[in-house]
């Protein structure tokens, strides 16, 4: 299946990044257990049916706030991880979970390989999330490195 650009998620996730990008990727990514310096909570709060949201239909073709040298697939994964870092971390620690499965979907891991993907992620948890201050950039980088080192999963690593 073609890679689907989650522009809605992209726009929402990145709307908090008012700062200029510093390095590859999509501006400063979120950090484990801290979100994007408080903006995640604000963004989340804007979802509730009583609070103003200026993103009616989050459609924007692409790389809002992102370093345009990055391929679309990387931006997609980065945006998802920014918004779901905590959820992916706990699923990886448990070796199974819906948020981790969402990440696998974005990486185009087929259903038959998802269990192996989850097991490998769990086995390498402390490498992918080395500390309580792990950033999205580190987590994504390390996860790609882990995938590349695995014969069966290497093809799903992003070439970032």
């Amino acid at each position: 299946m073609k890679k689907v650009l989650l522009t809605a998620g992209l726009t929402i996730a990145l709307s908090g990044t008012a700062m200029a990008q510093s390095g590859p990727g999509c501006g400063l990514g979120s950090m484990l257990f801290k979100g994007k310096s408080g903006t995640v909570n604000h963004v989340l709060a804007s979802i509730t049916n009583g609070i103003y949201s200026n993103q009616a239909f989050g459609m924007s073709t692409g790389t809002l706030g992102c370093d345009t040298s990055q391929p679309i697939e990387y931006t997609e994964v980065a945006a998802y991880m920014d918004a779901n870092l905590d959820q992916v971390a706990v699923d990886m620690a448990r070796g199974e979970g819906e948020s981790l499965d969402g990440l696998a979907t974005l990486l185009d891991v087929p259903a038959s390989e998802r269990a192996a993907f989850a097991a490998t992620a769990q086995a390498n948890f402390t490498r992918i999330f080395p500390s309580a201050e792990t950033t999205r950039e580190t987590a994504v980088e390390e996860l790609m490195a882990v995938l590349r080192e695995d014969e069966a999963l290497a093809e799903y690593a992003l070439n970032a």
Partner: peptide, 21 residues
């Protein structure tokens, strides 16, 4: 700030067999 505690728990959990909540 419970980040350290949450992280320690996740690290601990990753050593156990996989199991979704």
């Amino acid at each position: 700030d419970l980040a350290e505690v949450s992280y320690d728990l996740l690290r601990l959990r990753s050593r156990y067999p996989s199991g979704e909540l």
